[in-house]
Amino acid sequence: MNKVPFLALLGGDSDRQLLIIAIVFLVVIFLLLGLLGMAIRATTSAMGKKMDDELHDAVIHRVIDNPKQLLRYGRIKNDRLFFKTALPALGVLFISIILYLGYAGATGNWHEDFLGHFSTLFWTWDWDDPSCWSNFWGLTLLSGWPPLESTPHWVNEYWASYLLVPLWTLSIVLFALSVQAWIARLLLLHRRVHSVYGKSLEGFNFYEEEKAASREKAAEPKGEGKEPS
């Protein structure tokens, strides 16, 4: 039986090029996702430490003496902390809503494409152009850079979009960070509930303890403890 090389299965050079591009693309995507995940883990761990600050005094001074009380106390503290940390995000959102209502009420444009208007500040490409897509074994893959549609430019009429979209983005990012911090603190709280009041029998043996006690008893001198007559 003749062995057929894998690359020989591909029809021509263009298919090989497409395969290589697809592999490189996937590797880069997975690498970026891996880094993103690691960053999320690191920030979650750092955000959770705030819970220790909140619980420290009450636990150290033994005011809280059972896991159920600690869980209740920690949850209330976590919610109150979230209220404070989310205040800037929701404050920005509130301001942006007031601006939107004022703008839309004054101009009558209640369904304006704010995101589309804001994109005039960036490069835009024509992703619908069929020349940049190829068919590879039944899959439609991006095979080339799409043609440039527009370059960054300022349009005076879109001032509301230039103002509102950054405010919305900022509030969403801040709120997402606050939510992430709340989740991180909740996870740490559950870990602490188990670790602070956890009882461990690791290394303990009932009979070993008994044997040690009997050995100590046997080692005591016989005359010890008797009062001199």
Partner: peptide
């Protein structure tokens, strides 16, 4: 990193 990317 590549493996973590697959997981994520």
């Amino acid at each position: 990193n590549f493996g973590m990317g697959l997981v994520y």
